[in-house]
Design a binder for these strands. Structure first.
Lengths: 142, 142
DNA sequence: GCTTGAAGCTACAGCAGCTGTAGGTCGTAT
DNA sequence: ATACGACCTACAGCTGCTGTAGCTTCAAGC
């Protein structure tokens, strides 16, 4: 029987985060000792590892919920998992494309910085004058 | 005299967001009509454009506060603005490097997907088995 | 059996950076 | 005078945790 602290240590998760996952339904309600402390089995450790790995790959908790659901029903088609992963990949690619634009503009800004007074600073000037910029009106996706 | 709605439209910002910026001290408290509605001048429109552009470049509100402060004091050195921009650039580069790792792993996962039953799904399997993965234990920086 | 200290418990507030809602008021065109 | 869109305040909610306060439980050592 594993304590919450052991699961935390094994997966690099904070204890509170595990309780949070339970609260939002990603982790099951585990058994308890007479004193009310959570005790887990190996299945829960695996499940938590799965969740953490997926989080590291940038999957949202909702996406992970779907993936866990698929994982719990091995007879079902793999297509859905594939679709979720492809969606995630597309998002990653979009973020990278946006970041690349930002990188270019930041580099341009910095390169042109005269190092003089703020009045002549290209960094500030570029920010002030939107017209010479590459980016559109969308907010940056994190 | 410009209404809050006009500023919103001109800068692609939600009205509530402008009020939020005022609340957190990025935008000044503007004058009001007798009825209590906000009225702005051109300076505020410029300031808001500056903020939005910086947000699009991924600057945090705190960084923008610093940049605005520099912009308000044109006689000061440009070095600080340059440092802030360089910091931002470094963050962007780090995010891109991480995203690139994620992209590779996602591509690998998807490529190996058999298209069969979930039981054989590589996507799920890779998530289950952390040992074959490229990423470390840090959480993905957004 | 008793003590101690680490680890666990609940409940709740807070982070960034907004966004949405409810329930009301203002401004202006007709 | 009225209608209606734009505005107002106040507050809750989003994602995904993280931190705190104040308490209880567990396990090891004596």
């Amino acid at each position: 029987m594993l304590t919450i602290g052991y699961l935390a240590k094994m997966t690099g998760t904070k204890v509170q985060t595990i309780r949070y996952y339970e609260q939002v339904g990603l982790m099951p309600e585990p058994g308890r000792t007479d004193g009310g402390q959570r005790r887990y089995g190996d299945a829960e450790l695996d499940r938590l590892s799965f969740i953490r790995h997926a989080r590291q790959l940038g999957f949202s908790l909702d996406a992970i919920r779907e993936l866990l659901d698929l994982s719990d029903h091995p007879a079902r088609s793999c297509e859905e998992a594939d679709a979720i992963a492809r969606r995630q990949l597309k998002q990653v690619e979009q973020r990278m494309a946006r970041l690349d634009l930002l990188r270019l503009e930041l580099e341009r800004m910095i390169e042109e910085c005269s190092g003089g007074r703020a009045a002549d600073c290209r960094v500030l000037e570029v920010l002030r004058d939107h017209s010479e910029c590459l980016t559109d009106h969308e907010s940056i996706g994190t």
